[in-house]
Amino acid sequence: MTAVHDVDFTLEYPYTRSTGPIVGPWLTGLRDGRILGLRVGGRVVCPPVEYDPDTGVSTSPDDLTEVGPAGTVTAWTWVCAPTSKHPFAQPFAFAQIRLDGADTAMLHAVDAGDMAAMSTGMRVVARFRPERRGAVTDVYFVPGDEPPPPVEADPDAGSVETTEHLIGVRIREPLFPFRARFARGLLEGRILGQRSPADGKVHVPSRGYDALNRVAMGPEHDVEVADVGTVTSFTEIAPIQYHGQTETEPWIRCSVLLDSADTTVGGIDVRHIGVEEFRVGMRLRMVWKPEGERDVSAIENRWGGITGGVYERWEPTGEPDVDPELLKDHPF
């Protein structure tokens, strides 16, 4: 992407939950076509919980008991515009359903087709999805009383002890103006900083404010800085693998104090210099990618450094090192 773009990022992770002594059997039941409630304090609670809601005393899986599959709607809402997280793409109802044999209502989805089909007090009944994995989404409800077709439970499936949940939050927004100017500068081969009106120090990359003096900075504070500087800090990273990680080989991440700047640029990735010769105080120059090949898509509002998309590499200038003692104001 060789243009400045809006942010569109999904903060996403595939979580693994352990289910414990009560939720586990409940989810196992759903997978096997049964809905379980829990006898506690003289009533049957569904969904079941690990504690007596009245006293907090721990409950026992021995008190799980089958409820439903039909029940009565005690309250509902019609979802006219489902989100990406909802169980149906078409309009449907979320409802409080008191299953037969239970004393409390559980929240679930009713695929009723039309809002006119919904009413408080109506009967609904479970439908188990063909593909079940031990999740609350293995089941949904439809109007009526007709029992669901028998579900064939896999006798070898074991009990549900863990569940997987891909949870993501999508973030979409324009780049903040100061970020957009910085990104545009990189595309043009210029590194832009901002000079604080409070003390004249040059921040690069700027965050749009001077944190020390607590003042905002605007376009009038933009200044260009050099693409040559001094290493102030570095780490060799052996990449830990996690969801979304694309790095596989160790590399050096360093901070560079660019000439004429007062803050360091962090997060500069160096892959062309060996760690044994890398050191604080070393002088480096950025070697730009050709203008048409620069990519600033990594720049967003929550991170805005000199992205690896705009340089070929950083290389030693051959100048003598700067005394690290002179750099100790720049530990980042």
Binding site: P47, V79, T83, S84, K85, F94, H165
Partner: peptide
């Protein structure tokens, strides 16, 4: 996180 969030049941729905 076990019985409700996977349904995407958000505060507006409740």
């Amino acid at each position: 996180p076990y019985a409700v969030a996977p349904l995407g049941l958000d505060p507006d729905a409740l």
